[in-house]
Computed example of a mutant assay.
Amino acid sequence: MSKKLEVTIPAKYPLAATLTLPDSNLEKYPAIIMVHGSGEIDRDSNAKGLPINAFKELSDLVVEQGFATLRYDKRGVGASKGDYYEAGAYDLIDDAEAAVTFAKNHPNIDSEKVILLGHSEGGIIAPIVNDRNPVSGMILLASIAEPLAKTMEWQREQMYKEIKSLKGFQGWLLRFINLEKKIKKMNDDLIRVVSETDEPVVRYKGKKINAKWNRESAEVDVSTSLKNVKCPVLAITGSKDVNVKVDDLQKIKELVQGECEIHVISDMTHMLRKTDLEFSMSKILNNTKKIIKAPVDQELKDIITNWLADWKSNEVKKAEMIIN
């Protein structure tokens, strides 16, 4: 059985985490640090009402391959200190960097064999952290290769296209009430409210908004950091991921300097599960809670397992070359 240690990552606000070590007698292990997507997400990648549990499943998977894993509750979530709503994009990057520093300094982790695994927003954070504290490998799940603001604009355009193409009474009704115009106005209003203040948190239509995160996320361009990535990279996106562009996989491969293996998994969504639904933003998003009842996709797990086996083999070869 693996050994699970409850640890605290020293950061601006201490981050509660689980360090899982394989069941073996090695003194040091290669490690995988898992970086969350957006939202109030804990170390297992669960949010209130949305138990994705992807990091727990993936941790169990890779620990069996001899990797240690480090999973932490996001700032202000679970047992971690701080305020989630006051955290900006750069704060989340700082926290992920603190996790890398903690792992590299831990007596049971080989500091030269640390991999960052990022899902969604975590795939933006991982390359930026690598700029500050280089890692030995990177796994990017459902990630992007452009500014987040540009991807969010693409998401809205997909939504507008769907509204225009919807048939029957529902389609007529949405067009009659001019839903597209209402969505555009609401988005413009929210951007204005967020940009006109320096406060970390604002209220918009009675809802708490993490304004600092919104402002800073608009500044971040992951493509700049992807150009600096020299370590091996595995990038995977599902063909039915309505949150990111599948074409960004090829862009990631072109941007990074290291070896990059990319995969498009047929029928997989942003939640890392497959669906039989057609590629429709509204249908897939509305069925998210049903989709996540299934385990994380087995094809995804197999690809990660095979890539990690190759990564370990290459690390052994590099060590032998140094010795010889």
Rank of each mutant, 00 (worst) to 15 (best):
R203Y: 12
K28G: 12
T288H: 10
D198K: 07
L92S: 02
L61S: 01
E40I: 07
A96V: 00
M271G: 12
K48T: 14
I265L: 06
H263Y: 15
K312V: 04
W172G: 00
G118V: 10
C260T: 10
L117P: 02
V229N: 01
L141Q: 09
Q250T: 03
P30N: 01
I292R: 13
D73L: 08
F176T: 15
Y85V: 03
S280E: 02
A16I: 05
P232S: 14
L19T: 05
A79H: 08
A211D: 10
P14F: 03
D189L: 14
T8F: 06
L166N: 09
K289H: 09
S38L: 13
T269F: 02
V242C: 07
L92P: 00
G39T: 09
K312L: 10
K28M: 13
G122Y: 00
L117C: 05
D23V: 06
I262T: 13
V201S: 06
G171W: 08
N306C: 11
N187Q: 10
S143F: 03
R71W: 04
K293Q: 15
I124H: 00
L277G: 05
L140T: 03
K227H: 05
V222L: 01
V220D: 03
L141K: 05
K207F: 08
T18R: 00
S2A: 14
V62A: 05
M34I: 06
Q257K: 15
L166A: 15
E315L: 15
P107N: 08
I284F: 00
K12A: 14
W311H: 11
T101A: 12
I41R: 10
E86S: 15
I304G: 08
G49L: 07
G118L: 07
V100I: 06
V296N: 05
E219S: 04
D83V: 07
N210Q: 10
T197K: 08
K164R: 13
S120C: 07
L234V: 09
P127N: 02
N228F: 04
V233P: 06
S313I: 09
R273G: 07
P107L: 05
Q250K: 12
S45N: 14
A99T: 01
K301R: 09
I304D: 04
V242E: 01
T101R: 13
N214C: 11
F55Y: 13
I115P: 03
T18D: 11
S225H: 06
E315V: 11
